[in-house]
């Protein structure tokens, strides 16, 4: 007991010091929290974890990835939006944010944040369960036309994984039945087990295709991917769809300009690291660096597109505020 007392006093003192941090010091003087709104082990997480390692080298502060999950990524977005605009909370933006806004899932909009940089681009692949009978795109489309509304598709409602099959549905004149599965890992489990027929995936699932546990039906790129040369593009099969998911970093609005510039510079250097490109290749992803201006323009463009798409597809609901 007597020997414990000084130790306890020290603990209390330590706690007091760490709580009373001085507010004005050179940014960054403490760890930066990177909010990833999807589960650890998912594709967004797998892109931002290696990126976090690279950017912390150039930023000079520890970057802690926080997976704030739930409600189609909405929880994380809300938390990031509400965070103090001091550069200590950055948000891993995914193109879905426009969609959750226009499908009425969440009241968080891309313009609630200031863009820092885009980081990566991942092409979408329409993927089927091994339990489905189709051996090719043609067999799939013929079956889908025969059985409208009976082929199930695992999607995160109102997210890119929902829009992509919806685009295919509309262009091909077929109809899917949607089932909600949050994130890539549960979606892949459901596909592997044959509990759903279809879903969106990407080149990270190549290994499972080679092992015969999944089937790639078509990829939404301009040209066939060298990573999966036997998979036809949607353009080849007559659907004019090119679809990818771009991810980047944003900060809450009103974050000081100097802090934003510092983050942008660190982001540029991190994205240029060859290690990062190698990590992204493992993720079926290309490095796609856009600076603050470029990313802002890109976000504006995809926002307009998303508004049009959700309206076209009948998914539009009045945004809530």
């Amino acid at each position: 007991m007597k020997r414990l007392a000084p130790a306890l006093a020290l603990l209390v003192a330590f706690a007091a010091v760490s709580l009373a941090q001085p507010a004005a010091a050179a940014y960054p003087d403490r760890p930066v929290k990177l909010i990833v709104p999807w589960a650890a082990g998912g594709d967004t997480d797998a892109i931002f974890r290696p990126f976090g390692i690279q950017i912390q080298k150039h930023l000079g502060a520890t970057v802690v990835v926080a997976n704030v999950t739930g409600a189609s990524g909405t929880k994380g977005a809300r938390e990031a939006k509400a965070a103090p605009p001091d550069g200590y909370t950055i948000y891993a933006m995914h193109d879905y944010i426009h969609l959750t806004y226009y499908t009425g899932v969440a009241g968080v909009k891309y313009s609630d944040f200031d863009p820092i940089c885009s980081v990566s681009s991942t092409p979408a692949i329409l993927t089927a369960s091994p339990k489905t009978p189709w051996k090719s795109w043609q067999e799939f489309i013929a079956d889908a036309k025969k059985r409208p509304g009976q082929i199930t598709a695992a999607v995160t409602l109102g997210s890119t994984s929902h829009i992509f099959p919806a685009l295919v549905e509309r262009a091909a004149g077929i109809k899917f039945k949607y089932v909600s599965y949050e994130g890539l890992a549960p979606r892949m489990n459901a596909l592997l087990g044959g509990h759903v027929d279809l879903g969106e995936s990407n080149l990270t699932q190549k290994g499972k295709v080679q092992a015969g546990q999944l089937k790639f039906l078509a990829i939404a790129t301009e040209k066939r991917s060298p990573e999966a040369p036997s998979v036809p593009t949607l353009k080849e099969v007559g659907l004019n769809i090119v679809y990818d998911v771009t991810r980047g970093l944003v900060v809450p609005k009103k974050t000081p300009g100097a802090v934003q510039a510092k983050l942008e510079a660190a982001c540029k250097k991190a994205a240029a690291e060859p290690k990062f490109a190698a990590d992204m290749a493992l993720q079926g992803t290309e490095v796609r660096l856009l600076d603050r201006k470029g990313y802002a323009a890109y976000l504006k463009k995809t926002d307009d597109l998303s508004l049009n798409k959700t309206k076209e597809l009948g998914l539009f609901k009045a945004p809530k505020n």
């Binding site: 650890a40 082990g41 890992a185 489990n189 290994g207 499972k208 990590d279 493992l282």
Partner: peptide
């Protein structure tokens, strides 16, 4: 077996493997 994390702890382990350039999967 599949490279799909079963819980939050194995998800972190999966992240660690990816960071080290190992892609867990069925093989």
């Amino acid at each position: 077996a599949f490279g799909i994390p079963g819980d939050a702890v194995t998800a972190v382990m999966l992240g660690a493997m990816i960071i080290h350039g190992i892609q867990p999967g069925p093989l």
